[in-house]
Amino acid sequence: MAISLDKLVGFHHKALTIRTERMEVIAGNLANANTPGYKAKDIDFQKAMASARTEQSQSLSRTHEKHFAGRTQPGFEADYRVPDQPDTGDGNTVDAQTERNAFLDNGMRYQAGLQFLNGKIKGMKKALSGGQGQ
């Protein structure tokens, strides 16, 4: 029986990829907190995961039997965040406290995902080695 790593860790890999992209977007917001006219962005994790699941089920068509089967790569769209506070006059919609909280929350979820993925890989290694030496 073949072992499918994609079935074992595919979901968690996609989740970590989305969390990484979201960290970059939030860091960009924090870096531009004092830039006049900058509009805060964010990635909706639930929507991105749904998109990744949908795109995972769609495979690319092969034009020749010797071609490798391919898959589409999910794209994560960053949408503008709706500001919680009224405009400060310079057109910047970044709320530093909201961004810090989102960054910390996303970071903790990223770490939890890494720990879960690490546990799955350790379990697979243990199963492959027959439970010896670990």
Results as ranks from 00 to 15, higher is better:
108 M>F: 15
79 D>P: 00
29 N>E: 09
22 R>K: 13
50 A>I: 01
4 S>E: 07
17 T>E: 12
93 T>N: 08
9 V>N: 07
34 N>Y: 01
84 D>P: 00
2 A>Y: 11
87 D>N: 10
53 R>E: 15
107 G>K: 08
23 M>Q: 15
54 T>K: 10
82 V>R: 07
17 T>Y: 04
43 I>T: 11
61 S>T: 14
53 R>D: 15
74 P>F: 05
33 A>C: 02
17 T>G: 13
44 D>L: 07
17 T>S: 14
89 G>R: 01
76 F>D: 03
14 K>S: 15
85 Q>I: 03
134 Q>S: 09
103 F>E: 01
43 I>D: 08
110 Y>K: 02
93 T>H: 06
131 G>T: 05
124 M>K: 14
27 A>G: 10
16 L>M: 15
43 I>S: 08
130 G>W: 04
60 L>N: 03
109 R>Y: 11
44 D>F: 03
25 V>Q: 03
48 A>T: 11
102 A>L: 12
4 S>A: 10
131 G>E: 04
2 A>F: 08
115 Q>F: 04
26 I>T: 05
101 N>Q: 07
131 G>L: 02
42 D>P: 00
45 F>E: 06
58 Q>K: 14
6 D>G: 15
82 V>K: 13
49 M>E: 05
46 Q>R: 12
30 L>K: 00
30 L>T: 02
20 T>F: 12
78 A>P: 03
120 K>Y: 02
86 P>K: 09
72 T>Q: 11
5 L>S: 07
33 A>N: 01
45 F>T: 06
132 Q>N: 09
43 I>P: 02
9 V>E: 09
3 I>W: 04
42 D>V: 11
